[in-house]
Computed example of a mutant assay.
Amino acid sequence: MTKLGNINFKEIKAKLQVKKPWDSVIILLLNILIAIPVFIIIHQKLIDPQWPFQLDRILLFLGILIVIQLILRLLRTIIIVCIVIYLLVLVFGSLFGNYGFNSVFEDYRSMVYAMSDDPNPQDIIISKLLPFPNKSKILNAIEYDNPKVRNFALLATTKYFRDVKGYSEYRLQIQSFAVFKEIQNRWNYVNDPKGKEYIARASESLIHFSGDCDDHAILMAAAVRAVGGTPRLIHTGGHIYPEVLIGDKKDLEAINYLIKEVLFKEESKGKELHYHIDERGKIWLNLDYTAKYPGGPFMSEEILGALTLG
């Protein structure tokens, strides 16, 4: 019985083994796919010794390749069986399901992109005790339930990014970005009357899409809130600007890829995302009128307070 079991096991193993040299090719390709994100993670944690021609990074990558290659060769039979099963599942998913080869490619590209192009975090904001200027007037002006504001926000979501596929879990953020794009394309900066702080209601700003920073922030916050987003206003003393809640670090990776490779590819080319982290670890993306894309650069001023609309 033991001999029969050994024979059957050897026969099964022989049938599962890939013929040479294809087994080595598969292992090498798998090695590269694993080594790239591993290298990105490790090299970001190391201090750059400033070696010429980036020799330290080259040696690190080669070392990672060698280690992973040895591990994969030791587990060759098991890994190849798992790959075959995985490929069959992806074929089925591509033909009959929602998750197939294209989804895997997009996930991998997003992961590597997010690791290699880390956004630019700003200072962590902790709720301040300083009073927010004109708080009651501003809250009253953010008319997110006004039909005109709601209809404008809906128009923006049908005008931009409506055909973006594969990111249903970030629909809320994408629609908030559509609102941002529509307002940015139409906004005209105009000062308040001399010697007077004029707070325009969101519905009022919709008439001419003109006003100063607080008028822009009010309209942006109202329209984002009207489509289900969570906005907040940041007060710096001489400036007020809006931000939108996008989630945690995991969400930031996906949003970073979406903004830079899908939604605002030209506007954000070669640039970083700018955001704040609150006391709960939640991430807020800059939507100021000075930014050409969500997460554009902040105006360099000391932050004195935040007003959240949740």
Rank of each mutant, 00 (worst) to 15 (best):
Y113D: 14
Y99M: 02
S205D: 03
F9C: 05
I68C: 12
G295I: 10
R171L: 12
N286K: 02
Q17W: 10
N8W: 09
L258Q: 00
F105K: 15
G305Q: 00
L29M: 15
I68A: 09
L287A: 00
Q54Y: 09
E267S: 00
L172T: 08
N185M: 09
D163N: 07
N191K: 11
N134D: 03
A114M: 11
I218C: 02
R171C: 13
I183M: 02
I207F: 09
H239S: 03
L95E: 07
A114L: 14
L62P: 04
K269L: 09
L70W: 07
G229D: 10
F152I: 04
I66D: 05
H239N: 08
G296P: 01
Y293W: 12
L46H: 12
R76I: 01
N188T: 11
P133K: 04
I34G: 13
I83N: 15
A306E: 12
D192P: 03
E197R: 11
P147H: 11
M299R: 10
K196I: 08
L70M: 10
K20N: 13
Q44I: 06
V38H: 10
K128W: 01
F132G: 08
I66L: 14
N256L: 05
A226W: 01
R225H: 13
E11Q: 10
K194Y: 09
N31D: 14
T2E: 10
F39L: 05
R171N: 09
K165H: 04
Q69E: 07
Y293F: 05
S203C: 02
F101W: 08
Y113L: 11
W22Q: 03
W22F: 09
F92K: 04
E143Y: 09
P294L: 13
D251M: 04
L206M: 05
I68L: 14
D117C: 03
M1P: 08
E253W: 09
D123H: 08
Y86K: 07
I68N: 08
M299K: 07
S300L: 05
D23H: 06
L95Y: 06
G281W: 01
Q50F: 13
F96Q: 06
I12F: 07
H208M: 05
I80F: 05
D107V: 00
P297R: 15
S203T: 01
K181R: 07
D117Y: 12
Y160H: 15
N151Q: 15
K194N: 11
S176F: 02
E182R: 08
K45A: 10
N8H: 04
P193L: 10
